[in-house]
Structure formats: C-alpha cells, structure tokens
C-alpha cells in the first residue's frame, strides 16, 4: 500500500460543505463531475448553434445551388485552408444530392433535433405526470387499470411501437413526435406515481389534508415538487433516446420529410450513396451522436449528483 502524505483540504471546501441545502450540494457535485461538465459544454454549444444558425450558416439550407455555383452534386468537402483550390466554392461538409450546402443543413438541423428532444419529452413529462399523479393519488382500480395499460406499452420494444403508432397516425414529423412522446409516457407516469404513493401517507401531507386543503392543491403544492429532481434526471436521459429514435424514424422515411434539414432524413435519403459520397452519411450521423451524447452525459451526471452514494462509488 502506497504511503503518501495527505493532500490538504482547502478551508473553503470544508466550510461550504457545512451549511448548504441538498439542492446546492447536488449542483456542486454536478459541476464537479467531468461527465456532466462535458455534457453541459456540448449542450451549451449546440444551443448557441441553434440560436445563431442564420448567422453561422453560409448558405440557405434549402436552397439548391444548381445554376448558382459551378459545383457537381454530392461534391465532397472543400476547405480552402486544407488545400482545396481557391477557385472552387468552399463547402465545409460538401453538398448533397440536391446540391445544397450540407454544412448549413447540419447547422439548421440542430434546431430541429433540439426541438424534437425537448418537445417530445416535454409532452411525455406533462402527460406522464398527470397520469401518474391521478393513478397514485386515486389508487384502487383506477390505478390498476392505468398501470396495466402502461405495462402493455412498456412490454413492446419502444421503437417498434413508435412505428406502429405512426402507421396509425400517418407519416410526418409531427406524428413521429406524438409517437415518441407516447412511448415515453409510461416511464414518467410510473416515476410520478411511485413518488405520489410514497408521499401521500406522510405526515405533512395528511396534516394539510386534515386542514382541509383540496386534493389538487396538495398534489401540486405538497407532493409534485418532491418528484421534480427525479423527473429532471429521467427527462434528461430520455431526451437523448428520443432524439435517437426520431432520427431513426426519419431515416426509415416515417418521420421528418424532405426537404426539411433533419439529420435522420438527410442520412436516410443519401444512404445508398454511402459508397461514393460517404460524407453525406458521415456528418449527419456525427451530429446526431454528439447531441445524444451531450444529453446522456448530462443525465448521468444529474443522476450521480442526486445519489451521492453512487457518485462516491463512481469516483472512488
């Protein structure tokens, strides 16, 4: 066993430990974690890209450059700094089958993907919370029926279920969003339900009930706030999955439809060209991966920060 002298703990570290709330501690742990830091960094970057897309994109993402520039369709990347002849138009990620600048499309795609991630999971959280709260608060047969339905949804592989739902609703980005939201509802419903069930018998809740507070008021003021931390963790982790699933649906032609600059669709429409123009497959895939990775890292970080024991284990 190595013998070493103890590093000195800084005084501030020890002092801020003494008098702080759980939330503060959670955030402090979050900021200390490398995973979470990387996740936040990437996500911040992506949000900026999405906001400033018009400023960052050199071209209109939907504009075909046929007749505008003399460039072949599916031409590879051309970066002047890396030795591409200066007389050729510069396209960082090449152009696609419709002679659109892929770099600009990737940049605008950030907007679509972030929107997909937040909107689907947002919907799933809202409906999951309502369903779970009703189920947990009502108990009895209502709870039983609702939870059996959730079990059925969970029993199918979620991607296949999403495909089936889209077949019922019809193709298109909007329906794909609904489908993904639906398959994500059960997780949140279960989470909120168990949190409601565990809290509803606790003293402070029974106390406010005996003081005549309405059930809704108790639910929203007393119970649900307690479920928020776990909801945040699960939501962050789910967003990555939702983006991945949406892209896969679009890849199969069930989700976003051309010409929308959506990464999965871009990949799907050019997939047969992978052997001749790999850049048209490579870049959208990287974009998807980085985005999903950011959410996954952040979600993991949140979870570890909430559960100090796990975090300690992960660290040590």
């Amino acid at each position: 066993m190595a013998v070493q002298s103890p590093p000195v703990a800084s005084v501030e570290q020890v002092q801020d430990y003494r008098n702080n709330s759980l939330l503060f501690l959670t955030f402090r742990r979050l900021f200390r974690q490398r995973n979470a830091q990387v996740g936040m960094l990437i996500l911040g970057f992506l949000v900026l890209v999405a906001i400033f897309a018009p400023a960052l994109a050199p071209y209109d993402p939907d504009q075909s450059l046929i007749g505008v520039e003399s460039i072949d369709k599916r031409a590879g990347p051309c970066i002047h700094l890396l030795g591409c002849p200066a007389d050729q138009p510069e396209h960082y990620m090449g152009v696609d089958g419709n002679v659109r600048d892929q770099y600009s499309r990737i940049i605008y795609g950030t907007r679509v993907s972030l929107f997909i991630g937040f909107s689907t999971i947002g919907l799933a959280v809202i409906f999951g919370t309502i369903i779970g709260a009703v189920s947990g608060y009502a108990g009895g047969w209502v709870d039983n029926i609702i939870m059996r339905i959730m079990d059925v949804i969970l029993a199918f592989p979620s991607f296949l279920l999403a495909i089936a739902i889209i077949t019922v609703l019809g193709r298109g980005l909007q329906n794909a969003l609904y489908a993904i939201a639906i398959v994500n509802v059960p997780v949140f419903a279960r989470l909120v339900r168990s949190s409601v069930m565990s809290l509803k018998e606790l003293d402070f809740v029974t106390a406010s009930r005996s003081l005549g507070a309405s059930p809704l008021r108790i639910l929203f003021i007393r119970i649900l706030p307690n479920a928020i931390p776990t909801l945040i963790v699960q939501a962050t982790l789910s967003i990555g999955g939702a983006i991945l699933e949406a892209a896969a649906l679009s890849f199969l032609g069930l989700g976003a439809q051309p010409p929308l600059a959506e990464w999965g669709t871009m990949l799907g429409t050019e997939r047969n060209q992978v052997f001749t123009s790999p850049h048209l497959v490579f870049f959208p895939g990287i974009a998807i991966m980085v985005t999903v990775l950011a959410f996954n890292l952040l979600g993991d970080g949140f979870r570890d920060a909430m559960d100090p024991r796990l975090a300690q284990l992960a660290k040590s």
């Binding site: 896969a248 990949l267 997939r271 052997f275 895939g285 990775l293 993991d300």
Partner: peptide, 22 residues
C-alpha cells in the same frame, strides 16, 4: 460505452460498410 449508446445503429452500419468494403 457512452459513445456506444449515443450512436445511431444505422449510421454505424453504413460507416462500417463503407470502411470495410470500400
């Protein structure tokens, strides 16, 4: 493993196909 779970399967498949066959 973080990268693994974040990767689109079909993208990896296409890239592998490109790398190994072309």
């Amino acid at each position: 493993s973080n990268i693994g779970v974040s990767m689109p399967v079909y993208w990896l498949g296409l890239m592998l196909a490109y790398v190994f066959s072309i």
